[in-house]
Design a protein around this nucleic acid. Structure first.
Lengths: 209, 209, 209, 209
DNA sequence: TATGAATGAGCTTTCATTCAT
DNA sequence: GATGAATGAAAGCTCATTCAT
């Protein structure tokens, strides 16, 4: 979806070229991918730097060649994830016109992030917040604000159009919980497609016309 | 199970008397309360047995007279919470008649658990799952099944009555996420009451008639 | 020398009773003695906490039951040494009347500290200064000032009496170097007694009458 | 050895031309200068090869093209220093006639070494001895013996002339300590000149006539 | 020669757990 | 039951050294 050249937002590749995020094939990129997976599965605290090293095929000491400490790896996982998803959401919004369509686009986008390849990193973003130092939290929070502003703007527009009934802030928060929790139960192999799930979530959020 | 619902549910005191859960004033009870709070705030891994000991005014070594190891404390927190909440839900259900009222009762009940005094323990139940040993997870899972069956029965009845449109299993899972996530944003001091929040959540779950 | 009951200054035992320094037979006391020896022989940096543990017959982890970190052990070695020696010097001064005698008393006292049982700790005090954190240095510096004031007062009095010719501050500093360096060459087993050495050092410091 | 003293000592440049020491402007020379400074300020152990590399503007790995290991850098610092100072002392002695003048020349020479540009290296020579491997210590010791022999010869001659009273070996050792310790307190900016300080040290060493 | 990623041994420190008192 | 000193395994991290480029 992001590789649609016609959309105005920078593509994933552009983010890599600008040095904002690491290429998945680079040493750092592979480390972050492995870290996301391990942090999701075992939790940040229970994942040792030796685990991380083994997962990418280097010694634990070598990790510190790339990141100054373990927490910086967690921070990088979170940062890249939120930056990447913000861009995906911008691109998705640009392709929709109607308020309800835009809401569906965001829901679909967030579900794809949570349940797709970047799902591990998304889960880490939600569950490992407390493991960040206070100052790292502030840093990520700023990025998160940009992301959340996209949601609030879209829901507010939907409210004005009458598609949404309840307060956009409360609705966003209820949706945040509902959508991020899917990582704990949704199975790709089951009968329910992500698109169907998105439609169901949408049906909760907006008034049937 | 549904036949149980109509029975008068045992009170909290009864659970204590039966030795199923610990009195909050007992040594064990105070420990579990403190543990829930610490586990919620710092996370299970970052909470040390010294922290736990200090919180209840004993040496860390003395904890092991009450529980064989740290994980057993986590398990006890989770177990008591789920048992207590199951009973609260049974009691709440017994006081409602209409399907939609029953759904509201469950939502209210879960929100009160998450946002009230037992909120710390509820949060631990959601966020510290991975810190349990496999066999402990199985044990809690059984208790959780009882709890979840109450939800599914109620939502299924609501579906049959036409109040609910989407699949009860999916709906329950979306609600689980939405309601448990409130712990991360709801503030008692704000304008929104828990009852209002419950109503808003209900408005998502059921079709307006 | 310090066990002379008639002197006004608190005895070594009194310092122990007051909790200012640790009894050599206590766990902490034995650790500090061993630490002084190892720090002197290998240097602070090259002495590992495993070395320290082995020297007192405990696991390295157990050291942190007594001191919060390795640097605190170094600090304690220095602190105890300077406190003990200050008391020894006060006692020695109290037994002399004439300015030149007092100077000799101080020289003898410092030599005995450097070359006797506490020599290792004295050497550490001189050579491992840079291994202390800035704030620890300040702490020790205050104690050192008390010690140095005894020297300066005594040399100043000797200057006034005509026994000393050069500036007391410069003289003290030259003596500091000369006396502390003895640890690197003086051998107890040789022909030269500490008393003779003290007399020789005195002959440098004061004008022959 | 005494017969050497009258020979015109090779200049610093000659030592460089002979490949005995490195030109200060050469890569190796700059490294040794930087190493001396860092070793003095932070201590050998606390100075990392990264620190050394940064100080001379190369990567840490590149250091090992110049020296086989870190200890070799320390050894080179010490070696160059002692060789250079031996030559300086020979030159200084050659310009004095009277025994007391010769003693003053040595004192002045050593003070200038300790307090001047090569002070860092001199300090390293004194304080980092234990960081040398046993065999490196032997190597430096041989060079040091040459240096010390100059001192002992000079002091012995002064003793025979009556200018010195106490045993030359003991005197030399007391002076070693007194002079090297100056690095810890002497400040160029203060009122006391190095020459005055040398005179004061001399006044301790020799009998006033 | 220089680079810089990688090594791997070893460091200090943490912490759940034990146990004699 | 409670204490608190001790354990010992394992954690995060450091750093001299190597080596392909």
């Amino acid at each position: 979806m992001a590789n649609n050249i016609t959309q105005p937002s920078p593509t994933h590749q552009a983010l890599i070229d600008q040095g904002i995020i690491n290429a998945p094939s680079s040493a750092k990129g592979r480390l972050l991918q492995a870290a996301a997976t391990l942090f999701k599965e075992k939790g940040y605290e229970r994942t040792t730097v030796r685990d991380l090293g083994k997962a990418v095929g280097i010694q634990s000491g070598s990790l510190f060649h790339h990141y100054p400490n373990k927490e910086a790896i967690l921070r990088a996982v979170m940062k890249e994830t939120i930056v990447r998803n913000t861009e995906l959401m911008k691109a998705a919004l640009a392709q929709s016109k109607e308020p309800a369509d835009k809401v569906l686009a965001l829901i679909r986008c967030e579900l794809e992030s949570v349940l797709g390849e970047t799902g591990a990193a998304m889960t880490v973003l939600v569950y490992e917040w407390r493991s960040l130092k206070e100052e790292s939290q502030q840093e990520i929070l700023k990025l998160r604000d940009i992301y959340e502003t996209l949601w609030i703007s879209t829901l507010s527009a939907a409210k004005e159009s009458g598609a949404v009934v309840i307060d956009p802030f409360v609705l966003r928060r209820l949706l945040t919980g509902a959508l991020s929790w899917t990582v704990n139960w949704y199975r790709q192999e089951g009968d329910l497609t992500v698109e169907q799930l998105a439609q169901m979530a949408l049906s909760l959020a907006i008034k049937p016309i």
